[in-house]
Design a protein around this nucleic acid. Structure first.
Lengths: 143, 143
DNA sequence: CATAAATTTGTAATAATTATAATATTCTAT
DNA sequence: ATAGAATATTATAATTATTACAAATTTATG
């Protein structure tokens, strides 16, 4: 296990998650890629390095990370769960043309909660949809 | 077809959707219930009144309504699509305890879009998660 | 009516996720 | 070090939401 992985292993341990090899690698992928990958994305990437890896392990690990608060599910896609480890508050933009998901800064605490008196709010998400500049350019140049 | 359905039939017609019986009923369910139902919810309710109804018709109709801008998909659930007839801008709150989805007013246009220069934004969603007052009360009274 | 177009239906296919049980690994105490 | 217990991983099968497809039905039009 290399140096950077060592830090992640510690991070897992601090959160009472035994830092097994597959778990460190899943977390590493989430941290390094920052791509809001699906379980499938993660599996396909890691199986090259860990041939014995099973998709169930990826799902188990993601569930564990979410349960312990180290990751969260991003539901911007219609039919699949994506995962995010970023801890600062941000919104998600999904390009309807190329499918890419982009983070953008949002001061989520500024969003008023009138009409939710008496509700306990755990989580606030902001999701935008549209077309990214790259795809807009491609459309303009005749695609 | 009763009186209120007549209005909905007109509404469909105005949007170039032939107002067939299943379509009017699906739209009516969305408008009356305001429950952000799943396709399954809609099917189970309507099939009592329209025994021949097929789930595919429900999906087809929902797709049509979304394509023509009369409804939108709400992705607050992990694994299923919910539907909402578009009226005014509002956010969605999902109770993690009872699963209920509640609308609340949000001035979505107020959310800044710094960091998204050059992006074309079609749609803005605000999704909160937490516990509703009813469930909070139940927890407090020892549930 | 007759024909064409659109809609509905039932069945089967797809795809993401979860359940389950067997196997393998890791930890702990001797 | 090693046996036994606890925990993780794996493979397979089951579940579930959604979509694809083609046949049957309904509706519109000449």
């Amino acid at each position: 296990m290399d140096n950077s992985s060592q830090g992640l292993a510690n991070y897992l341990q601090c959160n009472n998650i035994r830092p097994t090899y597959p778990r460190v690698k899943v977390l590493e992928f989430l941290v390094v890629q920052q791509n809001h990958p699906t379980a499938e994305d993660i599996y396909l990437h890691l199986v090259r390095e860990i041939p014995s890896l099973s998709k169930t392990t990826v799902y188990n690990t993601l569930k564990l990370l979410v349960d312990r608060g180290l990751a969260k599910v991003v539901n911007i896609e219609e039919n699949e769960m994506r995962y995010d480890v970023i801890l600062t508050k941000h919104g998600h933009f999904k390009c309807e043309s190329c499918g890419k998901i982009v983070d953008f800064p949002v001061n989520i605490e500024d969003i008023g909660t009138e009409g939710l008196d008496g509700f306990k709010i755990h989580e606030k998400d902001v999701l935008f949809r549209g077309v990214c500049p790259q795809c807009l350019g491609r459309e303009k140049n005749g695609g």
